[in-house]
């Protein structure tokens, strides 16, 4: 990576004790904190598993093939995200734009799938207040969806900024950090997919 020139210009102002960038350290620290956030939500879901006193129950309404596809879509978006970063690090801004847009689209597709799933569930009579499953499921996946939504806004902002020359090879770290967030949201879904959808009751 060619940070060297840019970095040398501000060498004094931007010296860090560890040699690591502030922004990346911030993002990793935030993700550590977010582990606990999603941990608490998943914990609520797990301790309430099988405690609902009325239906509909999860195994009656989960559509595993459908969710598998949307899980795969999100997983694929992680690949396009990392390809976008790789392209930018090699100075290929146009390729970067294609991949970052693809990532945002796949994220939107995932959210669309979640919207479909939510409406489907509510037609089967599952609302937020129907039972413990409804409350813990909708809040957990809804907050995850909100994270995806914020990620999409972030990616689209980067996409737009690249046209004003604000996203370049020498500050590809901006994209790397957005990518860290995006991949984290993806791994949270890996966990949710297993523990919420697949584990048998």
């Amino acid at each position: 990576m060619s940070h060297a020139n840019a970095a040398a210009a501000h060498a004094d102002a931007h010296r860090t004790s560890t040699g690591l960038s502030h922004n990346k350290l911030l993002m990793w620290t935030f993700l550590a904190s977010d582990c606990m956030f999603f941990g608490s939500l998943i914990m609520t879901y797990m301790v309430y598993r099988g405690r609902s006193v009325t239906g509909p129950y999860p195994d009656e309404i989960f559509n595993i093939p459908f969710t598998s596809v949307s899980a795969a879509v999100l997983l694929l978006s992680s690949l396009t995200m990392v390809l976008a970063l790789a392209a930018l690090q090699r100075g290929k801004v146009k390729v970067f734009r294609v991949w970052i847009l693809a990532t945002a689209l796949l994220g939107t597709l995932f959210l669309g799938g979640q919207y479909y799933e939510f409406t489907e569930f509510s037609q089967h009579g599952l609302g937020l207040g129907t039972n413990l499953f409804g409350s813990s499921f909708f809040v957990l996946t809804g907050i995850h969806g909100t994270h995806v939504g914020l990620g999409i806004i972030w990616l689209l902002t980067l996409f737009a900024l690249s046209f004003r020359g604000l996203v370049r090879q020498d500050n590809a770290e901006k994209v790397e950090i957005a990518g860290l967030y995006w991949h984290f949201v993806d791994i949270v879904w890996i966990v949710i997919f297993t523990f919420v959808y697949l584990l048998p009751y």
Binding site: S40, N131, V139
Partner: peptide, 30 residues
């Protein structure tokens, strides 16, 4: 950083119970 998220989640669940009719802490719903 590691302690607050648990409380945030508790507060979110409390708010969902109170504002949107969720049943996280509703004994009648289990």
């Amino acid at each position: 950083l590691l302690a607050l998220p648990s409380f945030s989640v508790g507060l979110i669940e409390l708010a969902f119970d109170r504002l949107f009719g969720a049943v996280f802490f509703e004994p009648s719903a289990g």
